[in-house]
Amino acid sequence: MQRVNMIMAESPGLITICLLGYLLSAECTVFLDHENANKILNRPKRYNSGKLEEFVQGNLERECMEEKCSFEEAREVFENTERTTEFWKQYVDGDQCESNPCLNGGSCKDDINSYECWCPFGFEGKNCELDVTCNIKNGRCEQFCKNSADNKVVCSCTEGYRLAENQKSCEPAVPFPCGRVSVSQTSKLTRAETVFPDVDYVNSTEAETILDNITQSTQSFNDFTRVVGGEDAKPGQFPWQVVLNGKVDAFCGGSIVNEKWIVTAAHCVETGVKITVVAGEHNIEETEHTEQKRNVIRIIPHHNYNAAINKYNHDIALLELDEPLVLNSYVTPICIADKEYTNIFLKFGSGYVSGWGRVFHKGRSALVLQYLRVPLVDRATCLRSTKFTIYNNMFCAGFHEGGRDSCQGDSGGPHVTEVEGTSFLTGIISWGEECAMKGKYGIYTKVSRYVNWIKEKTKLT
Results as ranks from 00 to 15, higher is better:
residue 164 A to I: 04
residue 135 N to F: 05
residue 75 R to D: 15
residue 174 V to A: 09
residue 145 C to I: 01
residue 411 S to W: 14
residue 229 G to C: 10
residue 102 C to S: 01
residue 285 E to Q: 13
residue 75 R to H: 15
residue 62 R to G: 04
residue 54 E to W: 06
residue 452 N to S: 14
residue 334 I to C: 02
residue 81 T to P: 15
residue 202 V to E: 13
residue 247 K to C: 05
residue 442 G to M: 13
residue 318 L to I: 04
residue 162 R to T: 11
residue 234 K to A: 12
residue 359 V to P: 05
residue 73 E to W: 04
residue 191 R to K: 13
residue 445 T to S: 05
residue 196 F to E: 10
residue 209 T to S: 13
residue 443 I to S: 03
residue 82 E to N: 13
residue 100 N to T: 09
residue 361 H to P: 15
residue 359 V to W: 12
residue 445 T to V: 11
residue 165 E to C: 04
residue 85 T to E: 08
residue 317 A to Y: 01
residue 344 I to F: 12
residue 394 M to R: 03
residue 186 T to F: 11
residue 313 N to C: 05
residue 226 R to S: 07
residue 373 R to V: 07
residue 53 E to W: 04
residue 367 L to A: 13
residue 373 R to H: 14
residue 412 G to T: 11
residue 185 Q to A: 05
residue 394 M to C: 04
residue 83 R to E: 05
residue 417 T to Y: 02
residue 431 W to G: 11
residue 36 N to M: 09
residue 411 S to F: 11
residue 40 I to W: 06
residue 61 E to Y: 15
residue 43 R to S: 14
residue 418 E to M: 14
residue 438 K to Y: 06
residue 225 T to W: 11
residue 131 D to C: 06
residue 355 G to I: 05
residue 354 S to N: 10
residue 341 Y to C: 03
residue 165 E to I: 09
residue 247 K to G: 08
residue 120 P to R: 11
residue 255 S to W: 02
residue 432 G to Y: 12
residue 386 T to K: 08
residue 136 I to Y: 15
residue 333 P to A: 06
residue 452 N to M: 07
residue 451 V to I: 08
residue 376 L to W: 05
residue 245 N to S: 10
residue 39 K to R: 11
residue 381 T to C: 05
residue 144 F to N: 00
residue 441 Y to M: 10
residue 362 K to T: 10
residue 118 W to A: 15
residue 362 K to I: 04
residue 443 I to F: 06
residue 219 Q to I: 11
residue 112 I to T: 08
residue 401 E to F: 14
residue 344 I to P: 02
residue 182 S to Y: 09
residue 122 G to Q: 07
residue 207 A to S: 13
residue 258 N to Y: 01
residue 426 T to V: 00
residue 408 Q to W: 14
residue 451 V to T: 05
residue 281 E to P: 09
residue 32 L to M: 14
residue 156 S to W: 14
residue 266 A to R: 03
residue 323 E to L: 10
residue 217 S to G: 05
residue 170 C to K: 02
residue 435 C to D: 04
residue 266 A to M: 04
residue 323 E to A: 14
residue 390 I to A: 08
residue 241 Q to E: 03
residue 92 V to W: 10
residue 214 I to T: 13
residue 97 C to Q: 01
residue 173 A to K: 10
residue 27 E to Y: 06
residue 360 F to V: 10
residue 429 I to R: 14
residue 161 Y to K: 00
residue 19 L to Y: 06
residue 18 C to S: 07
residue 454 I to A: 01
residue 439 G to Q: 09
residue 33 D to T: 09
residue 103 L to F: 06
residue 6 M to I: 05
residue 120 P to E: 06
residue 76 E to Y: 15
residue 186 T to P: 10
residue 430 S to R: 02
residue 310 N to H: 14
residue 449 R to W: 10
residue 113 N to V: 05
residue 377 V to L: 09
residue 69 C to L: 03
residue 435 C to W: 03
residue 330 Y to M: 09
residue 276 T to K: 07
residue 254 G to C: 01
residue 80 N to V: 08
residue 43 R to I: 10
residue 21 G to F: 14
residue 327 L to I: 14
residue 154 V to F: 11
residue 12 P to Q: 08
residue 414 P to G: 12
residue 272 G to E: 07
residue 336 I to M: 07
residue 225 T to G: 13
residue 389 T to W: 13
residue 280 G to V: 01
residue 328 N to I: 00
residue 155 C to P: 00
residue 141 C to H: 00
residue 400 H to W: 09
residue 53 E to D: 07
residue 242 V to I: 05
residue 397 A to G: 09
residue 408 Q to L: 14
residue 105 G to P: 00
residue 40 I to D: 03
residue 360 F to Q: 07
residue 252 C to M: 01
residue 288 E to V: 06
residue 140 R to M: 07
residue 430 S to H: 04
residue 119 C to G: 01
residue 118 W to G: 05
residue 299 I to R: 06
residue 83 R to C: 05
residue 172 P to T: 06
residue 229 G to E: 13
residue 390 I to C: 04
residue 188 K to M: 10
residue 237 Q to I: 08
residue 365 S to W: 07
residue 91 Y to H: 15
residue 168 K to T: 05
residue 73 E to L: 06
residue 276 T to V: 07
residue 28 C to N: 03
residue 277 V to Y: 01
residue 426 T to K: 00
residue 264 T to W: 01
residue 401 E to L: 14
residue 405 D to S: 15
residue 314 H to T: 02
residue 100 N to I: 04
residue 322 D to C: 02
residue 233 A to I: 08
residue 244 L to S: 00
residue 436 A to M: 15
residue 410 D to S: 09
residue 305 Y to N: 03
residue 297 I to V: 09
residue 221 F to L: 12
residue 302 H to M: 02
residue 217 S to D: 12
residue 337 A to Q: 01
residue 91 Y to L: 15
residue 29 T to P: 02
residue 168 K to W: 09
residue 108 C to D: 00
residue 75 R to M: 14
residue 450 Y to V: 01
residue 417 T to Q: 04
residue 121 F to W: 09
residue 37 A to P: 15
residue 78 F to V: 15
residue 295 N to E: 11
residue 380 A to W: 14
residue 248 V to E: 08
residue 282 H to D: 04
residue 148 S to H: 08
residue 293 K to L: 10
residue 338 D to V: 03
residue 461 T to E: 12
residue 5 N to C: 11
residue 222 N to E: 10
residue 397 A to V: 06
residue 13 G to F: 13
residue 391 Y to F: 14
residue 34 H to S: 07
residue 11 S to C: 12
residue 72 E to Q: 15
residue 280 G to H: 01
residue 353 V to C: 03
residue 216 Q to M: 10
residue 111 D to V: 06
residue 125 G to C: 00
residue 359 V to C: 07
residue 231 E to F: 07
residue 65 M to V: 15
residue 336 I to Q: 01
residue 312 Y to A: 06
residue 280 G to T: 00
residue 407 C to Y: 05
residue 250 A to Q: 11
residue 235 P to M: 09
residue 270 E to V: 13
residue 5 N to Q: 11
residue 412 G to H: 04
